[in-house]
Simulated scan of single mutants.
Amino acid sequence: MPPIQAPQCPLSMLSSHLLALSFSVSYVGSLYMVKNARLRFSEKPDTRRNVQPGSRDDPAVIRARLTAATFTSILCCWGVYIVVAQSSHPSFNYVLARTLYILGARWPDSIFSCLQTPLLFLGPLYASFLAGKLPGQSAYSINHDFKDVFFTWVGFRNYVWGPFTEEVVFRACVLSVYAMGGVTRWKMIAFAPLVFGLAHAHHAWDTYNRYGRTRDALKRAVMTALFQTAYTTLFGAHTSYLFLRTSSLLPPLTAHVFCNIMGLPQIQYEMRRFPQQKQTIIAVYLVGIALFVYTLKPWTAGQSIYWGAPDAFWRTVVGSAPR
């Protein structure tokens, strides 16, 4: 019998790049196309809310931006659905099931894939333990450290809906169109994070205006944008790896939320604050990094349509219905 030929990719690599870029541009652009979502810098601060009206932390702006991001995320998912429909069964339910499956709407095979990223923050977690700031410790406050963080518009944006819409667009949608263009997984890990990193460069405009539109403000904006782009690109590479390894949106989403909560590690500040535990803090940081590297592959292993055989993705798209 002649060998079974894998289905032809419905997208070229150029089309994949253009679609991925259009997802990024539409996501960022939607934050400026909606009138109430645009930032304003000329009004005086509102002392009652302790926030500048029209700034990115203004609840009215946050609500408008989250609405725009939600609408854009749905459109991006619909774009993936259209490509899948052109290569699969004409039935709506059939194509929808496949679209959701390749977009990562499934539980990962192992819960450890959701716990792998926190290992990298073992040092900061230990410092929080020394400060008594972990849940259940004396310095932890439900009202201040939980309710005031998560049950505000800023917290909802930073730790809930912002990460969710970004992972849907920049992980699920971008990586799936790259896969439909036949792009290799290592190239996807390189391309997709760059799209994600560049999507954060627009924050430079906010920084430049907030600091007075001076030469120093421009310098600060450029440096901040370069750092944020580099950081989010590296972070995007890791979350792309998690998505490709697990075929699930949950591991990169939990990693995104956790990293947003923890922020950047501040080992120098922690050692100055707890000088007697300086050596222990350094040791815990190193152990966390070592465990992160050691568990990166085994904890993310599973039946992935992106990481398996070269035609595994296509068998899911045009083959039998996913289980």
Rank of each mutant, 00 (worst) to 15 (best):
M1D: 07
I4W: 06
Q5E: 15
Q5S: 15
Q8E: 04
C9N: 12
L11M: 08
M13E: 12
L14N: 01
L14G: 01
A20H: 00
F23A: 04
V25M: 13
V25G: 03
M33E: 05
K35D: 12
N36R: 15
A37H: 00
R38K: 12
F41W: 08
S55L: 12
D57A: 12
D58F: 09
R63Y: 11
R63A: 14
A64H: 04
A69Q: 04
S73W: 07
L75M: 12
G79E: 07
Y81H: 09
Y81K: 06
I82R: 15
A85G: 01
P90G: 02
N93H: 10
N93G: 13
Y94C: 05
T99E: 00
Y101M: 09
I102A: 06
A105T: 13
P108A: 13
F112S: 03
F112C: 07
L115H: 02
Q116W: 07
L120S: 06
F121Q: 01
P124Y: 00
P124D: 09
Y126C: 04
A127H: 03
S128W: 09
S128G: 15
A131M: 04
K133V: 09
G136M: 00
S138E: 14
I142G: 03
N143V: 15
N143M: 11
K147L: 13
D148M: 04
F150E: 12
W153G: 10
W161Y: 08
G162V: 05
P163D: 01
E166T: 10
A172V: 03
A172W: 04
A172G: 14
V174W: 10
V174S: 04
S176Y: 02
A179L: 02
G181A: 13
G182N: 05
T184R: 11
R185E: 08
W186T: 12
M188W: 05
M188F: 03
M188K: 01
F191T: 06
F191L: 08
P193F: 01
V195S: 00
G197C: 10
L198Y: 11
H200G: 07
H203P: 02
W205T: 02
W205A: 01
W205F: 09
T207Q: 11
N209I: 10
Y211H: 14
R220Y: 09
A221S: 15
M223V: 00
T224M: 14
T224R: 12
A225R: 01
A225C: 15
L226N: 09
A230C: 14
Y231R: 03
T233Q: 04
L234N: 09
F235G: 00
G236M: 00
A237V: 06
A237P: 02
A237F: 13
T239D: 11
L242I: 11
L244W: 05
S247C: 06
S247R: 05
S248Y: 08
L250E: 03
P251I: 02
P251N: 00
P252G: 07
L253F: 14
A255M: 04
Q266T: 13
Q266C: 07
Q268K: 14
R273D: 12
R273L: 13
F274Q: 05
P275L: 03
K278V: 06
Q279C: 01
A283Y: 01
A283W: 08
Y285V: 03
A290T: 14
V293W: 02
T295L: 09
T295V: 08
L296S: 10
L296C: 05
K297A: 15
T300N: 13
Y306L: 02
W307H: 11
A309S: 12
D311I: 11
F313W: 03
G319H: 04
A321S: 12
